[in-house]
Every structure is written in structure tokens, then in C-alpha cells.
């Protein structure tokens, strides 16, 4: 919905910075009104076409509780500059949405950025709460996302770091050497999404049996349910039913 806004941006009500459309991420194209794509749409809205966008990059000031998002961003950009890295190269975009700060990081700089986030005294994100994979087949060239939530106990802050990799080259550097807790989390994400974490000490399947084929939580992997006969009627598996999304 944010993506439907004009490129000029809307006035920032309740401290939410306006979104710039050019950086918003298209994740799917919705046709029709009710999402019913395997049955006749009799509503008359069948011709509607709408691109669904995830919120795009935000403009300064980022806000946050007590202006802390600006503080974090300033510190991170300053610290990266000190290390001789141009912040714009490492940080693809900074998104503030629903009072949460997200840094989209270029994958080749992920380790350095994470190290800075962990070690810089003004940042000190000591606790990584693991990685969550998301598969956006509609986001061409950036299909696989790895989302990290970093928590700073020192400053009581939480940020999100997101990296993406194309489906054709599903490689992301591993953060296990920085955050050993990511060991199992990265194995889980590999198991479910096929994201390969380079530098992980033992990237093997963790949830599924070792000889499992495919990566079950990707969008192109079927749910795998079977049709059920109930009182003589066949009820298809949840992913085979008519739906409204």
C-alpha cells in the first residue's frame, strides 16, 4: 500500500517518514479484487492489476524512540566511514516502518557491518536473535532474504538487518564467527530455503532428514498436504483450495 503513494511522499504524520517509491520492493502483482485465481471472478473487478510493494527507503529524520534511529544510523555510517568503507555501498537502504529500523546491507559487506554493529561502543548489538529466511519469488534478482534481528542489551535497542541474494546464486556470508548463536539458525534457514551461508562450519540439514529433496519453506515448494475424504466428500489440501489472498 505504501508503494501506491506518489513519488513526492506524503506528509509525515505521527513521525513516520515518507517512503520513496523507487526503492520500494515489488513482491507480487495482484490481479482482480479477491485473490480468487482458480475460479471465475464474478465481482466485476477481474481487470484490476495492482503491484504489492514492501515499504521503501525512508528519508531523514528516522525518528524512533527518542530519536534513537538517527543516532544508530549516524553511528553506523560514521563507523563504516572510519573503516574506509563508503556507507552508501554497504547500506543499500534504510527503512523505517512501524517504528522499526531496518538496514538493507549488501551481502559482501554483511560481516563487516555486523562486526561494527556488535563491537562499536555506541552500537553494541551483542545479542543476535537468529536469522529468518523469507522467499520473495516476485522480487526479481533479490528472491531470497535473510533477516537478522539484533538486540543491544547495553542500550535496550532492537534493529533489523536484511540481506538478499538472487535465486541463481543463493550465497550469503555466515555470521557464526561473530554470533555463534547463529549456528543452528543458519542451518535451519539453509534447510528451509536453500540459502548457503559461506563460512559456516557445518552447513547441513537440521530439521529435515538428511536425504530430503528440496527446500520445503520456499514459495515454490508445495505444502505437501493430501486430500482428505470426510463422510464421503473429498476435501483438498489447504494449498489446493480456493482462497482469497
Amino acid at each position: 500500500m505504501t508503494g501506491d503513494q506518489g513519488s513526492g511522499g506524503r506528509p509525515s504524520g505521527n513521525n513516520v517518514p515518507s517512503a520513496r517509491e523507487d526503492t520500494a520492493e515489488p513482491i507480487r502483482v495482484q490481479k482482480g479484487m479477491f485473490g480468487a485465481n482458480n475460479g471465475g471472478d464474478t465481482s466485476g473487478y477481474g481487470g484490476l492489476v495492482r503491484t504489492v510493494m514492501l515499504p521503501g527507503a525512508s528519508a531523514r529524520p528516522y525518528g524512533g524512540p527518542g530519536g534513537s534511529f538517527d543516532e544508530i544510523a549516524d553511528e553506523l555510517e560514521g563507523a563504516l566511514e572510519e573503516q574506509g568503507l563508503v556507507p552508501e555501498n554497504a547500506i543499500e537502504k534504510t527503512v523505517v516502518d512501524r517504528d522499526e529500523l531496518t538496514f538493507h546491507i549488501a551481502r559482501e559487506h554483511l560481516v563487516q557491518v555486523a562486526r561494527t554493529l556488535r563491537d562499536d561502543p555506541a552500537l553494541r548489538f551483542e545479542l543476535c536473535t537468529g536469522v529468518s529466511g523469507v522467499h520473495y519469488p516476485g522480487d526479481k534478482g533479490r528472491e531470497l532474504h535473510a533477516v537478522y534481528h539484533l538486540r543491544s542489551l547495553t542500550h535496550s535497542r532492537l534493529i533489523r538487518v536484511e540481506v538478499s541474494a538472487p535465486d541463481a546464486d543463493p550465497h550469503v556470508p555466515s555470521l557464526v564467527e561473530l554470533y555463534p548463536t547463529n549456528d543452528w539458525h543458519e542451518r535451519e534457514t539453509y534447510d528451509f530455503f536453500g540459502l548457503i551461508f559461506d563460512g559456516h562450519p557445518a552447513l547441513t540439514r537440521i530439521m529435515m532428514p538428511d536425504d530430503w529433496q528440496g527446500f520445503p519453506q520456499r514459495k515454490d515448494y508445495p505444502l505437501g498436504g493430501i486430500a482428505i475424504e470426510y463422510k464421503g466428500a473429498q476435501i483438498p489440501a489447504p494449498d489446493q483450495r480456493r482462497s482469497y489472498s
Partner: peptide, 27 residues
């Protein structure tokens, strides 16, 4: 509305975090 959010509670075992992503749909 499309977007993502992270909510965490202190469960008896520790930090229970939920990362939810919506694509603007009903699911």
C-alpha cells in the same frame, strides 16, 4: 498492509521472537 514486524515476549524459556511478514493479503 504489506511489511514486516518483529515482536518479542519473555517466555519462561527466554526471548520468544516472532518475525511476521505480510504481502497485503489475508494470509
Amino acid at each position: 498492509p504489506p511489511g514486516q514486524a518483529y515482536a518479542a515476549v519473555e517466555s519462561p524459556k527466554g526471548e520468544l521472537g516472532v518475525h511476521v511478514v505480510s504481502d497485503g493479503g489475508t494470509r
